[in-house]
């Protein structure tokens, strides 16, 4: 297999700019600050309790991991937003499209660049992260889990960024649009549940459902949470830290004597949920990348538009 030329070129070009140095510096600085802050809080907490301080140090793992994932989630769209629109602004995009590169390989090159870069940050911050294993006593196998999730977060946010980049003329509007999409994933997937809750409490208040027994299917709106990145991370870290599943509580959040019915009963168990959710995120990423590739193809196969 040969390396995508775009990856090779982009990495080379970006490694020559000072931006990457400052980037790594800022990344590690934030991590270090979070580390000291977490340590300070842990120390203070254990001052008032008889618990061994070491039992609390394991919390360094989720704190440092989540910090990194949030930074990646924020930074990756900014970097990828210029992937296509930047080439258009520089007017190198047309030339690229006249070469043997297919639109899809251009997109793949861009997404791979983004992933390699964010993994570079993650690896560069290993020394800080390692603290949570060394003094926190976390099992090293969780390092691999963290890497896998960092990979998924990078893929997901990169594909959002690239899709927006292919739609927008200006890089800056691509960034804004990417964050807009984030909001849609974080809050939009919560909306059906919120509406359901309001409707149900209204019904409860009116006394229409109090005596009904049987199955309630309303909780199935929580299936939207499968594509909510926040739920995904919460589920992962809650399970790692406490050994309990967060989402398996969902079937119990129905009110009254109703039993929860429908697919949510089976899906909302820790492992199945994580597997399904992972598959969904990968599928959504691929969908975005496919849409982006379609979008940048100058020769569209179906329904060719005349308006440029």
């Amino acid at each position: 297999m040969r390396l995508n030329p775009i990856v090779k070129k982009d990495i080379k070009v970006q490694s020559r700019s000072m931006r990457i140095c400052w980037g790594v510096f800022a990344y590690e600085l934030i991590l270090a600050l979070v580390f000291f802050l977490a340590m300070a809080i842990i120390q203070q907490e254990s001052a008032y309790s008889t618990n061994n301080i070491y039992s609390r140090l394991v919390w360094l793992y989720p704190v440092l991991a989540v910090t990194q994932l949030i930074i990646l989630g924020v930074v990756v769209p900014v970097r990828t937003a210029s992937a296509i629109s930047g080439e258009k602004e520089r007017q190198t995009f047309d030339i690229m499209m006249t070469t043997s590169m297919t639109p899809f390989s251009v997109i793949m090159g861009k997404v791979m660049t983004a992933i390699v870069q964010s993994m570079f940050f993650v690896v560069a911050s290993m020394p800080v992260m390692a603290l949570s294993f060394v003094i926190g006593g976390m099992s090293w196998s969780y390092l691999l889990w963290f890497l896998a999730i960092a990979l998924l977060v990078s893929l997901f946010s990169a594909s959002i960024g690239i899709w927006c980049s292919s739609l927008c003329k200006k890089s800056i509007s691509a960034v804004i649009m990417s964050y807009g999409l984030y909001v849609a994933f974080f809050l939009g997937t919560m909306l059906p549940y919120i509406i359901y809750q309001i409707a149900e409490s209204a019904a409860y208040y009116n006394g229409t459902v109090t005596t009904v027994t049987g199955y309630s299917y309303g909780e199935n709106v929580c299936l939207f949470w499968l594509i909510n990145p926040a739920v995904y991370l919460v589920e992962f870290f809650v399970e790692v830290m406490t050994g309990e599943s967060f989402v398996s509580q969902i079937p119990n959040i129905g009110t009254g004597t109703l039993q929860t019915g429908g697919p949510i009963r089976y899906i909302a168990s820790g492992h199945l949920w994580m597997v399904l959710s992972t598959v969904m995120f990968v599928a959504i990423s691929i969908l975005f990348l496919w849409l982006a590739a379609r979008r940048i193809n100058p020769i569209k196969k179906h329904g060719a538009k005349n308006k440029a």
Binding site: V13, D94, I95
Partner: peptide, 9 residues
């Protein structure tokens, strides 16, 4: 092309 740019670095 009539207008074209190059990459920095």
């Amino acid at each position: 092309p009539d207008f074209f740019g190059v990459y920095d670095n």
